[in-house]
Write a protein that binds this DNA or RNA. Structure first.
Lengths: 160, 160
DNA sequence: GAAGAATTACTCGGATAGCCGGTGTCCGAGTCACCTGGG
DNA sequence: CCCAGGTGACTCGGACACCGGCTATCCGAGTAATTCTTC
C-alpha cells in the first residue's frame, strides 16, 4: 500500500507556487527542472490538481500553472484526494454475508460491519490530520528552518 | 492507494477463530468455504499471518491454523502490518534537495522535510487508531449486534 | 508611427506503451491419522 | 484384546502465471506573443 509519487511532487509544487507571491504562471518545464522530475509525467499530475480545483492552468505562450486558492485554503487532504481519489483505502466487500453468513437472519446485517467501522474510523483519524495541515502551515515551518527556500524558488522561476 | 484484500480476509478469519473457544486447528479449506474465498490465495495470506506471529500452523492430516495469541492481544495494526508491511505509505524521496535545492546551504536540510513530517504525523494517527482496536473488541461489538455469529462459526467448523 | 492580420513558438491536454506489485493458481514436501496384521 | 508397522490421505509451504494500476512518454489542439505589412 504505497502512496503515489505524485502526492509528494504535488505538495512540493504547491509549496513552490506559494513562495512566489505573484500571480504569474509557471510552466511544467520550469517546475520539473526545479526538482529534476520527468516533465510529461509531472504535467499529468498537475492536470489532476487542476481538475480538483487546486491549480488554474493558463494556455498559450508564457502560460503555465497558478494557485487557484490561497495556500491557507489548500490542505494536504485536498492534495491526496486530488491524486489518489476520495475513496477509502479499505474497501469492505461484505464477505460476512457470504458462505456461512447466508444462514444468518437478515437482521444480523442491519448494523454496519464492525470490521469496516473500525477500519473507517482509523482512516478518518488519518484524514482528519491531513485536513488540519495546509500548504501555508508547511511553508511557515520550512521558512523558519530554511529561510533561503523562498528566495531560491523565486530565482528558479525567473523572478527578479 | 487501495489496501490489499487480504487485510479484510485476515481480520474476518481471526475473528472466526476467536469465536471458537478451543485450540483445535481449522484448515484453509474450511475457512475459505465459510467466506467463499479462493482457497489457495487465502492460504497465502494466512502464511503471512504465521510469519507475523498472529497464527500458528499445524501440518498433517486434521491440521490447520490456530490463533497464536489471545484475541485481546491482536490489534488491527498487527494485521495490517502482517499483510501490508511495516513501511509508511508516504515515502519521502527528498526531492527538495534536487534541482534548485542543490544551491541551498547544507544547513537547510538538517531538519527533516516538513512535508514528510506532516504526512508521517497523519499516518501515525491512523496507526494509533488501528493499534487501539483488538480482535476481541470487534468480536464484542459483533456479538452485541448479531449474537448468532459465534454459533454459526462453530457450526461451520464442525464444532458440536 | 500605428493598427491589424498572419505567423510563429510555446503551452496544456489527452491518448498511447511499459513495468511492477497484487491477484490467483498449482504442485510438492511433510506430517498425522488410520488400517492391518501379529502377538 | 493390545500394540507396532506400514499405508494413505490430508495439510501447509513455496514456486509459477495473470492482470490492473501506477509510471512514463509522445504528439496534437489551442492560445498568446511576435512579426510583418499596410495605411
Amino acid at each position: 500500500m504505497r502512496m503515489n509519487q505524485g502526492v509528494e511532487w504535488s505538495v512540493h509544487v504547491l509549496l513552490s507556487l506559494a513562495w512566489l507571491d505573484d500571480d504569474e504562471p509557471v510552466s511544467t518545464a520550469s517546475l520539473a527542472a526545479s526538482y529534476e522530475l520527468p516533465v510529461a509525467y509531472l504535467n499529468k499530475q498537475l492536470q489532476a490538481l487542476v481538475r480538483a480545483g487546486l491549480l488554474r492552468s493558463l494556455p498559450g505562450a508564457r502560460g503555465g500553472f497558478v494557485l487557484a486558492r490561497r495556500p491557507e485554503d489548500i490542505t494536504l487532504m485536498d492534495v491526496v484526494a486530488a491524486i489518489e481519489g476520495r475513496e477509502f483505502a479499505f474497501q469492505c466487500t461484505e464477505i460476512r454475508q457470504h458462505g456461512m453468513g447466508q444462514e444468518a437472519p437478515q437482521s444480523a446485517f442491519r448494523r454496519k460491519c464492525a470490521v469496516d467501522s473500525a477500519m473507517q474510523h482509523a482512516e478518518l483519524q488519518w484524514r482528519k490530520a491531513l485536513a488540519a495541515k495546509t500548504i501555508a502551515d508547511i511553508r511557515a515551518e520550512a521558512d523558519s528552518h530554511a529561510p533561503s527556500a523562498a528566495r531560491l524558488a523565486r530565482k528558479a522561476y525567473g523572478r527578479a
